[in-house]
Design a protein around this nucleic acid. Structure first.
Lengths: 344, 344
DNA sequence: CGCCAGCAGGCATACGTATGCGCATAATAT
DNA sequence: ATATTATGCGCATACGTATGCCTGCTGGCG
């Protein structure tokens, strides 16, 4: 109140009013041990009074720390509009909150793979580190990731956590999740379980999920049948097409484990068109628990990933790395959400 | 290549190598007219060679311009997890892209209404301006918005554009959209059209949509029947409850215009439970065209807002304001997406 | 009573860029 | 030929904070 608006108060103004030097103000507001409690409180009061707030640019410039992280989504197709993957959007929420909790600012950007992020974000001191979220062919990213590692860029990636992973990575326990789905379906007496999703080195997360399913089947002495696996990427029409392919093969199956909810939804449409009932003829399990999953008929049984945990783990891992105390790669357990698409 | 990694190159390094002064480097890279083309190109080459990038903090500090805008979502309920309104997520995509196109960085944050953004973002020079997106009771925001205006904060809001709007606001033409929905239903021969959504000063956008519907009906000489309007907020269960209320009233109706897709989806569930068919007994139109809208059975006819345009208009309006050349409030046309929930 | 430890805070400076002003040199006008 | 203007660039400095180092003072202890 005691100040002409227009020119914002600086730490010098506070210092003058408090009868101390500018550095003391800085120390006081950052909670340094070397300023007495009385002085600190006086300074804090004045600062509050003037509606003072530390200039972020000056602070970051001097301390070489921006307390900001950049979240980079990259998707290879969709060159044009919106239609962000709903799963990542949920992740965005979790990351945002964790950043808030840790007092970090969050920059976000959608990228094509070609752009050079490190230059734009880390080298220019916009952000202390990067979080990389992206679907798409993993093998296409490998070179980029290697570059980032070589360049010494601080980053964390969401993806399949394995031995050959490039750069710090955290992700869900996809193998465990696949096992979860498999056990559930097996527990319902299903024996011929199909997998819809591209399960190779291009899509390691899908591959992990499939591996988990096979694992569960192996537990019951069932060998995986290649005829029951059909490639499909994340989208709804891919699921539809894959299910038609499966049906067209003429092999018998009584359950489907889809690598994503959208695939599952597309598959359900194809099953309906083929006159197959869910869960009567075919039980079906999806992955991700997107909002739409509970709105389908019948509602979709699916695997829910731990979003909140994911946000925390990503941010914490990144911060640890920025502070030069790298955390080991972490993996998060997933949970089965049972709905009517698997009977019950 | 010609430089020990570890300490990033500065404009002084470039200057030294180019045999000019640091200010000249700065001017050259910003494209100032007062540096000769030859010198500029030499400097650019060296900069590229060293992988130089301007330090954002120093630049922003000196120029008092961050070229960053902050996107603030605020939602009053959901104190806890994710579940962001899907509509805003689509908006996020559009805004991100427009920022990218204009070379702006985007900070994002979810807020409770209580926090003081201006302090956190504008006053600390984190961002040049704010974009405010939020659902919830508008009357609760009014005081906050007035404060922002008084404080001289640069911001734009997404919402209902009317005469009494506080602060710079852009939004869809909700009245026109309501008219669109109304005309469509009337064109199908429906005469008893119910509106599900809270249509008062607390939710001006919903009120506008309702006004548009009434407008369309008036065009056919039909007076609005208060018994056909039921309050409902954005969520699915609210839609379910509202439809049950409507059915419980015993009034006849042959169409529903829902203020949001989620309301519409909830209503469809209630209709099904009551043994009413869609579109046989009741035609239904939603609003927003969320991804789930095309996945319902039957797929939902809905109003699609111009997201891309919205992102552009929001960003452009904000930037204009920051540059002290305010744009007049703008409104965007919406489009009707016809699916099977209205027959056809 | 003298010495050393520790606390509280001041001084100087660095972070890296952008910009007002002034000064040459070259181009044009008189 | 000189006077005028435009061009290209350097000098100095400001932006606002954080931090290493040093100092003065208080107090405890031998």
């Amino acid at each position: 109140m005691g100040r002409p608006p227009g020119n914002k108060p600086t730490s010098f103004d506070i210092a003058y009013l408090a009868g101390v030097s500018q550095p003391t103000v800085s120390r006081a507001l950052r909670g340094s041990r070397s300023v007495s409690r009385a002085t600190r409180e006086r300074i804090e009061a004045i600062a509050r009074d003037l509606n003072y707030s530390v200039d972020k640019n000056a602070s970051s410039l001097r301390s070489q720390r921006s307390n900001t992280i950049a979240l980079l989504f990259f998707e290879d197709p969709t060159p044009d509009e919106s239609n962000i993957n709903p799963f990542f959007l949920a992740m965005l929420g979790a990351i945002t909150r964790q950043c808030g909790a840790r007092g970090l600012d969050l920059l976000i950007s959608f990228q094509k793979m070609e752009d050079d992020w490190h230059v734009r974000y880390q080298d220019s001191h916009r952000a202390d580190g990067l979080i990389l979220l992206g679907y798409g062919d993993y093998t296409l990213y490998q070179r980029r990731l290697t570059e980032l590692v070589d360049h010494g860029t601080h980053f964390v990636r969401w993806g399949s956590v394995g031995a050959d992973t490039i750069g710090p990575t955290v992700g869900s326990d996809n193998v465990g999740a696949g096992r979860l789905a498999g056990d559930h379906l097996l527990g319902l007496g299903r024996r011929r379980i199909a997998f819809l999703g591209q399960a190779d080195e291009h899509y390691p997360e899908f591959a992990d999920r499939y591996a988990g399913l096979c694992d569960a089947m192996a537990g019951q002495g069932i060998a995986p049948d290649p005829a029951l696996q059909v490639d499909a990427l994340t989208a709804e029409d891919a699921g539809h097409a894959a299910a038609r392919t499966l049906i067209g093969r003429g092999v018998s199956f009584d359950a489907i484990f889809a690598a994503s909810d959208l695939i599952a939804i597309g598959a359900m449409r194809a099953l309906a068109e083929a006159g197959l009932t869910v869960p009567g003829n075919v039980a079906i399990v999806g992955f991700d628990d997107i909002p739409a999953a509970s709105l389908t008929t019948p509602p979709l049984t699916t695997i829910m990933q731990d979003m909140k945990g994911a946000g925390q783990l990503l941010v914490d891992t990144l911060v640890a790395q920025v502070e030069d105390q790298p955390l080991p790669p972490g993996t998060l357990p997933a949970r089965l959400v049972i709905r009517r698409s698997t009977g019950g």
